[in-house]
Amino acid sequence: MSTRFSATTKAVPTGLVLTLAGELDSATAPAANQAVQRLALRDGDQLIVDLTGLTFCDSSGIAALIAARARARGAGATIALAAVPRHLTKVFGLLGLTDLFVVHPTAEHAQQAPAAEH
């Protein structure tokens, strides 16, 4: 288990960007979940989860991403993932989760694209 993890949030014109960096695993998923619960999402916002700095993600981390999706949808917001690491893209495919999230190459691209929800 790891403790090298950070979750930071910034407001952007389309909503919020939640940046997750480091190792998202069973030890750090609770911190990710707490960060998601603290988000001040409003109806019509887009939550962009930027994974540029994510180096590892286990099943607990995937569960945290799914919980973020549920939180966004519950607030009337959309969600998109940005800069999904190749290893996580492969895992999403193996688990049949590829249609669960809209994915963009960068957080900036996600901000410029029309918000879409799967």
Rank of each mutant, 00 (worst) to 15 (best):
G76F: 01
A31E: 06
A27G: 15
L51T: 00
A63V: 09
G61C: 11
L41Y: 00
G96P: 03
E23I: 02
S59N: 10
P85F: 05
H109L: 13
I79R: 00
A27N: 07
L81H: 01
P30G: 06
S60L: 12
R69Y: 04
L97S: 07
A40P: 07
H104C: 14
D25P: 04
A21Q: 08
A80W: 01
R38G: 09
N33A: 11
G53Y: 05
A64G: 12
G93A: 09
G74A: 06
P30F: 08
A11N: 14
I62R: 01
A29S: 14
A27K: 01
R71V: 04
D50T: 09
D50A: 08
G22K: 04
L65R: 02
A83N: 07
A29K: 02
L81R: 00
K90I: 15
T55G: 15
V36S: 02
E108G: 11
D45L: 04
T55W: 05
G61S: 11
D99M: 03
L100Q: 11
G76M: 06
A32I: 05
T9W: 06
K10A: 11
H104R: 11
A32T: 03
A35H: 04
A82V: 02
P85W: 04
G15Q: 00
G61K: 06
F101P: 03
L39Q: 01
V12L: 05
G22M: 06
A11I: 14
A63G: 14
A64Q: 03
A7E: 00
P114R: 15
A107C: 11
G44Y: 10
A40G: 07
A29C: 11
T106F: 13
A35M: 03
H109S: 14
K90R: 15
L39V: 03
V36Y: 04
A70T: 15
H87T: 12
A32Y: 02
R4N: 13
R73C: 04
G76T: 10
